[in-house]
Amino acid sequence: MFVGVVVIVAYGNLGQRLAYTVRSDEVVATAGFVLVGFVAGVAGQVLGTRIQAAVGEGAAVVDLPLVLFLAASGAFVAALLRSVLFERDDPLVMLTVGLLLWLFFELDPSVTARRVVIALAVTVLLGYLSYALDTASLPGMLTGVLLSFLTIVLGGFGWFAMLITFFGLGGLSTKYRYDEKLDRGIAEENEGARGSGNVLANSIVALFAVVAAAASPSHIAVDPLLFFYAFAGAVAAAMTDTFSSEFGGLYDNPRLITTLRPVEPGTDGGVTWQGVAAGAAGAGIIAGIAALTQDISTVGSGVILLCGLVGMTVDSLLGATVEGSVVGNQGVNMLATLAAALTGAGVVLTAGLL
């Protein structure tokens, strides 16, 4: 693991510099870092395993699917950290990546080489499309790629279908009538391209649910289905919040959710009936995808729909009360998805749906 992390960062830097010589573009340079770092990470882990076996400190068998998974995860995380946090602090990047990969190694997930390769192809393609269409900045694209990759490998394609629907439709809703939103003062910054903070705020709870599902029941004595509902609920909440704000903000006469008094468009905690309807439709889309891709009942789909509505309501309540004074917008988004995830887990536990 140590050798793998060191060579990911070291040779990733080399790949980034070589890419710059070909084309002076940030995306191309990052692609060079990820590609060369991934290949070096695979080679480093295989070589390290062989050396350990040669000196009698380990088995000579190489778990190739796990090696591919760890190398890809490490390359994505290192590229993300360098782009937003520690661009010139490689030791800190190596420490952070090493701890994360250690966690993944200890989880010993049941991964296959085929799923890892498909996950790489799908997420890299979709990540590039999101950047090319200006629905995400480079850090936002890297964050989305990492989350999507982990969701496919650790959760499955059904889980990924919900997540990518949120990323795709959420990004497009941000672009919808963007100039009008700009005039009304409610448009997202950077021409609607969402950054890593925004993507993480809406997805970090879902990511924890994916990792927890991979750790259960071997490391956590809980039915993995519990974490599925937490994941789906968090994604549904993110979708409802995005739809309600992006579509509802285009209409006049919003009312503060706590007092129902009319407020200016864009006021934190202000809601319109059109926004509520759009949010409910977003939650319905996620619930429908869950029903199509997972073996859940109609009641289970209703639970996911409920989670989305709870998340939207909590987001508006926090916006009207503590946003700006206690927490920022991204903190409110995270708390809303957390409330939705807890709602999903709590309902399935009390209703006996496990």
Rank of each mutant, 00 (worst) to 15 (best):
T174R: 07
R114F: 15
S245T: 04
Q274R: 15
W159L: 13
A283C: 10
Y251S: 00
T165N: 03
S137V: 10
V6H: 10
G270S: 06
L70N: 00
L146G: 05
V7R: 02
Q274I: 15
A53G: 05
E57L: 14
A281S: 10
V67T: 06
Y178R: 03
V84M: 13
L103Y: 14
A113M: 08
E246V: 02
S216N: 01
T49C: 10
G288S: 02
V263L: 00
W273V: 10
S316T: 06
P139A: 10
R50M: 01
A132Q: 06
A193P: 01
V3I: 11
A340F: 07
P65K: 04
A201W: 11
A10Y: 15
T313V: 10
L260T: 00
L101R: 01
D268F: 07
V310P: 12
S325P: 15
T337S: 03
A340H: 11
G195K: 05
R177Y: 10
L101V: 03
V326N: 06
Q294K: 14
L260G: 00
V117E: 15
A113I: 10
L70G: 04
P109C: 06
D63M: 12
A237V: 14
S301H: 00
L47N: 08
G319D: 02
V61F: 11
S173K: 13
A206V: 01
G74E: 04
A238P: 10
E264P: 03
V9Y: 04
S297W: 05
F247T: 07
G324N: 14
V303L: 09
V263T: 00
F231Q: 04
